[in-house]
Write a protein that binds this DNA or RNA. Structure first.
Length: 231
DNA sequence: AAGATAGCCAACCGCGTCACA
DNA sequence: ATGTGACGCGGTTGGCTATCT
C-alpha cells in the first residue's frame, strides 16, 4: 500500500507561484511563524499543498536568503564540502548562510560539475579523471596476477567515496600501497596494449603471417582466453 | 527573423526518517 | 511494538530565457 498523498491534488494549484500567493504565504508566516505546513495552506487561504508552501518559503521567500551569483569562495567551499559529504545538499547548505540546498544543488549541476570536468577532475570522486580511467580499465580485466593490490583497487574503484571514514581508509590505503599500485597499473597497461609481438611480425610469407595472427588472437590457440577475464 | 538548441532554475515527486499515539 | 502522519531530502522535470544557426 502506497503512502497517501500529502494533500488533495484536485483542489491545489501547481506550477509557478503568483505574486498574490507569495504575499499570502509571507503574511501568514510573519504572523504565525514557520511550521505546521500541512495545515498552513488552508489557514493562509492558499490552494497549495503544504509541501509546496514549505519549498516556496525555504527556497525563495525566506528573508535571509542571499540572492545572486555564487562567489569563488562559495564555489571552493561547496567543492570541499562535497568532497567530504557527497550529495548531502542540506548539510552543505547549512555551511553556506543564505544559500538553499536546492540552489546549491542546481549550481553544482550546472556550473561546478562542468568546471571540475574541464579541470580533469571527476565531480563524483574528486579525483583526477585519468586516475579513474586507469583504475577502472585496469581492474575490470583480471590477468594472471590476483594479488592483494588488485583486490584493494577493485574494492574502491568505480564507486563514490561519500563516507568520510571510507575515504580516510582509502587515502591511507593509497599512501601505503601507492607504489605497488602504480607498478601494477603500469604492468597492466603494458599487457593491455594489443599489438603483435615482434617475433610474429617478422614472419616473411603472407600466408604464414595470417596463420600467426590468427594464432595470436587466440582463434587457434588459448593465448587470449576470454574465460580468464573478469568483466 | 525564425526555428533549434542549450542552459538555467523553480517546482514537483517519491521515499526515508522521525515523532507520536 | 507498531502504524500513521508530517516533515525533510535528493533526484528529476518542465518551462522560460539566451544563444546559435
Amino acid at each position: 500500500m502506497g503512502r497517501s498523498p500529502c494533500c488533495e491534488k484536485a483542489h491545489t494549484n501547481k506550477g509557478a507561484w503568483t505574486k498574490e500567493e507569495d504575499e499570502r504565504l509571507i503574511a501568514h508566516i510573519k504572523a504565525h511563524g514557520e511550521g505546521c505546513w500541512r495545515s498552513l495552506p488552508r489557514a493562509a487561504g492558499l490552494l497549495r499543498c503544504g509541501k509546496s508552501c514549505r519549498l516556496r518559503w525555504i527556497n525563495y521567500l525566506r528573508p535571509d536568503l542571499k540572492r545572486g551569483n555564487f562567489t569563488l569562495e562559495e564555489d571552493d567551499l561547496i567543492i570541499k564540502l562535497h568532497s567530504l559529504l557527497g550529495n548531502k545538499w542540506s548539510l552543505i547548505a547549512a555551511k553556506l548562510p543564505g544559500r538553499t540546498d536546492n540552489e546549491i544543488k542546481n549550481h553544482w549541476n550546472t556550473h561546478i560539475r562542468r568546471k571540475l570536468l574541464s579541470q580533469g577532475v571527476d565531480p563524483a570522486t574528486h579525483r583526477p579523471i585519468s586516475d579513474q580511467f586507469s583504475n577502472s580499465s585496469n581492474t575490470c580485466i583480471s590477468l594472471e596476477r590476483r594479488g592483494d593490490v588488485r583486490e584493494g583497487i577493485s574494492k574502491y574503484s568505480g564507486g563514490v567515496l561519500q563516507d568520510a571514514a571510507k575515504r580516510e581508509e582509502y587515502s591511507s590505503y593509497n599512501s601505503t600501497q601507492e607504489q605497488q599500485q602504480h607498478k601494477f597499473e603500469q604492468e597492466v597497461n603494458l599487457e593491455l596494449c594489443i599489438s603483435l609481438p615482434n617475433n610474429y611480425l617478422q614472419q616473411d610469407s603472407s600466408s604464414k603471417r595470417k596463420e600467426v595472427v590468427r594464432d595470436f588472437l587466440g582463434l587457434s590457440s588459448a593465448m587470449l582466453d576470454y574465460r580468464s577475464l573478469d568483466i
